[in-house]
Structures are given as C-alpha cells and as structure tokens.
Design a protein around this nucleic acid. Structure first.
Lengths: 169, 169
DNA sequence: AATTTATGTCAGCCTTGTTGACATATTTTG
DNA sequence: CAAAATATGTCAACAAGGCTGACATAAATT
C-alpha cells in the first residue's frame, strides 16, 4: 500500500489548504485548559471528569431520571453506574423513587453535592469571565450562539431543557 | 461526615448562583460534537483521537522533534510512543535524524499522512464555518481571541509557533 | 397473564493516560 | 578525554472511563 520510501513533506498545513487550522487548535487548547481547574479539585476527592459531568447535570436538573441523564451524557448505563455509585456512596447525590413511575430513580444533589458542583464551576466561570474581558466582549451571547451552533441540530433541544437558556423571553 | 439523611436539593443551579452554567455546558456539548466527525473517520482506520492529535501537529509543524511534540500535547513519551509507532508503521509519518543533533528525531508527514490530516480537519472546518454563519459572525477573529484567552498565559506562546497565527502582521 | 420498560449488576475488553526503571546513542562539560 | 547530561526508545504494570453482552428484578403496560 504505502511505498517503501515515503517522502517526508516539509511544508506546514495552513489556511491556504482551505481549512482554518488555527481555530481547530484553539478549541483543543482552550478545552484542555478549561477542564484543568476542576480536574485538579476532583483529584483531591479521588474523582475524575466523569464524576464532574454527572454532578453537574444532576445539579442543573435536579430530579432527572437515570435514563434522562444517560441521554444527556451519551454514555452507557454501565459507565454511568460506576461513577454514580461513588457519588451516592460519598453523599453527593441521593436517589428518590419516581412518584408516578416507581421504577424510575430521580437523582438529586445533597447540600454537599451542590457545594462541590459550585466549587468545580467557580474556576471555570472565572476563566470564562476573564477571557470575555480579555477578548473585549461585553457579554457572552456571541460566544454562546457560536458554541450552540457547533452542536448537532438534533441535540440542541436537549440544551434548552437546562435552566437559563435562551429559549424563554 | 455526611449525615444519614442527606436532604435532596430540588432547586436547579442557575445563573443566580453567580456562575454562567450555560456557557460551561455549551463548551461541553460543542466540543463533544466537534470531535465526533473525525472520531468516526479515525475508527475506520483503527485509530483514535490520540492519533489525530499527533497527526495534526506533525502536519502543522513538520520536522518538529519528539520532545517538542510531547511539550505541545502534554503527555508522557510512553503514551506518545504507542500511537506514534502505529502512525509510522502505517506510513503516515516518517522520522528523520536531526541534522545538527543526531539524537533527535524530526517528524514529518508523508503524502498519505497529509491526506488523512486534511480529511480529518475537513468536517471540523465545515462545522466551524456553518456555526460562524449561523451565529452571524463575519469572521472568526472574535471567537479565536476568546478561545485563546481561555488558555493558560504561559502556554499561549506555544500556539504562536504554529502557522497562520495572529502574531505576524 | 404476558410483555415491555427502567434500572442494576457481573464480567471482560479497549484506548489512552500514568509511573518507574533501564538501555542506547550522542552531545556537552569539566 | 572521561564523565555527565540529554534525546529517544522500550518494558512492565496500573488507572480511568469508555464499550459490549448477558442476566436479574420490579413495576408498568398491553
């Protein structure tokens, strides 16, 4: 398939090749540093990024069911089970039997869980605010619209189910 | 530590709590979908996201050394070794002995490696352009400034070493 | 009464990160 | 020149967090 003497290409891939590589890289570096602050806090608790995600959405939509959480995270129940169990055992999340459908388990944060979620979000919030200022952006609406537009259209409805979205007037 | 009867909290965490959770989530969803297109292509080759990163930066900075690549990716040489070996064996990347320092291995893409890097970047580029349009942004400068500002200051210099950055007039 | 649904759980696998130890070639330094 | 430092490679073991497949239970639906 590949010849024995594959020639090295010495010219860098640039904008001229029809693709904006700078933005692609910026997203990579930005996301990496954006997640680094909560990662450091989580490590103190013996938790990882997966725990953060679960804790975040349970705090953002208290009472959501396991199935709804799986739908938001797009992972399997086996993956969720591991981290959810640890969060429940640690007293960060509690399960309540569904009122109408008793098969369901509604997930709620405890006070402890809320505190941790807030502590994890704080450095991210500060980083975002600093970046908005640095980029001389008065408010975050432009960024939010752009990020939302990056998401697959089918999945955007899901984002609207979360509080303080742009859906209400 | 945690009491036996930890009370479930029923109110959602919102902007009122002093943190812009919407933006935090938008970054999560956006990054996830942003990486999904190349992930699907990579799977056809038996590669993963780690291969993409290596291939990307070797194409963006042909001739960079192993140490430089490790510095950009911020992973250990053992992690890099696995994926780099597969990319070399597959004929996507070639190693050239450093001209001044013969201990160094300069990494270059082959034509095959360049083609794959471009194929992986294409759907991402399309997604970004569509999002810019949708968000009614004439050019990407605002977004790029914001994303760059999210990155730890010490690491920004590294971004300038890549082609078509904002550092040259 | 039978089937479907929501959840939980066991077992095993994969990718991609980690640490620690050690080998080799080459360059730099005293 | 000998010794030390550096760039890279490699072996082994481990962890996190994804995955699939199989099976169990309770509750709702048909």
């Amino acid at each position: 398939m590949s010849t024995d003497d594959a020639e090295p290409i010495k010219t860098p891939l640039t904008l001229k090749d029809g693709v904006d590589f700078a933005i692609i890289e910026h997203l990579f570096f930005a996301y990496r540093d954006f997640t680094s602050d909560p990662d450091a806090i989580l490590a103190e608790y013996g938790f990882g990024r997966a725990h953060h995600r679960v804790l975040h959405f349970v705090n953002r939509r208290p009472g959501l069911t396991v199935a709804e959480l799986l739908d938001v995270l797009r992972i399997t129940k086996q993956s969720l089970a591991r981290v959810l169990k640890q969060l429940i055992d640690g007293g960060y999340i509690v399960q309540v039997q569904g009122p109408r459908d008793r098969r369901q388990r509604e997930l709620y944060p405890t006070e402890q869980g809320r505190d941790l979620a807030l502590a994890l979000a704080l450095p991210q919030s500060r980083r975002i605010n600093a970046a908005l200022q640095e980029a001389q952006l008065a408010d975050s609406a432009v960024i939010e619209r752009f990020l939302r537009a990056l998401v697959n259209p089918e999945l955007r409805a899901q984002m609207d189910k979360l509080p303080n979205g742009r859906s209400e007037p």
